[in-house]
Design a protein around this nucleic acid. Structure first.
Lengths: 111, 111
DNA sequence: CTGTATCCAGACGGATACTG
DNA sequence: CAGTATCCGTCTGGATACAG
């Protein structure tokens, strides 16, 4: 038996598991990478597009909208000539990002 | 800028992001919940089936096979009359489970 | 009890073209 | 530069029935 209390993993009423919901909130194929990217500081749309490799602009936009709605990232249009838009992690997003980094370490360490 | 070094998030050659791979390794809809369940100790197939709610036996089996192949869980058939099979986390799986718990806390805390 | 075998509907994501 | 709009193939997971 482990130290923490193994409570109900899914809500008896809604049948929803908070952890599964959180992981789903992290997004699909590119969500985690996107979040991990932003742990390095704010980035523009095209920068993200290039950093994430083969992601389509459609999917990237959708993912950004979801994260924004969840309060994980902030969207701030710059008023320069190129009309770029900067995306950055909110405090809440950074907290999640910190856990993501542990996932990164775990995948490297091969415990 | 944050404290940790923001290296390449996806491999320049393979285009693979370790974090995204890890999250994908965590499985689909029920993977995280399954892993979280097992942090409380070993469970039998049917116990897991009931704990996870509406998961089909097909999907549960597939997920268990994946986790087993990844070295996250162990499968040990009991020799009792009911021919039950116990599943439990390996050390590696427990290490990942510890991070999952943080995800649980994060989703609750609403930073 | 612990699976395996089909079948299938819906979600997900990629390609492409177009707009402000 | 930063999206939006369609179209469409693929992958996932649920239902169901059957088997060791």
């Amino acid at each position: 038996m482990t130290a923490h209390t193994p409570g109900p993993w899914s809500d008896p009423v809604t049948g929803v598991c908070p952890v599964a919901e959180t992981l789903r909130l992290l997004g699909g194929k590119h969500g985690p990478t996107l979040l991990h990217c932003l742990t390095g500081g704010e980035m523009h749309f095209l920068e993200l597009s290039r950093a994430l490799g083969g992601i389509s602009r459609k999917v990237l936009t959708e993912q950004l909208r979801v994260f924004e709605a969840e309060g994980l990232i902030s969207r701030t249009p710059k008023q320069d000539a190129r009309r770029r838009v900067a995306y950055a992690l909110t405090p809440r997003g950074q907290a999640l990002g910190a856990i993501i980094v542990q996932l990164y370490d775990w995948s490297t360490a091969r415990v």
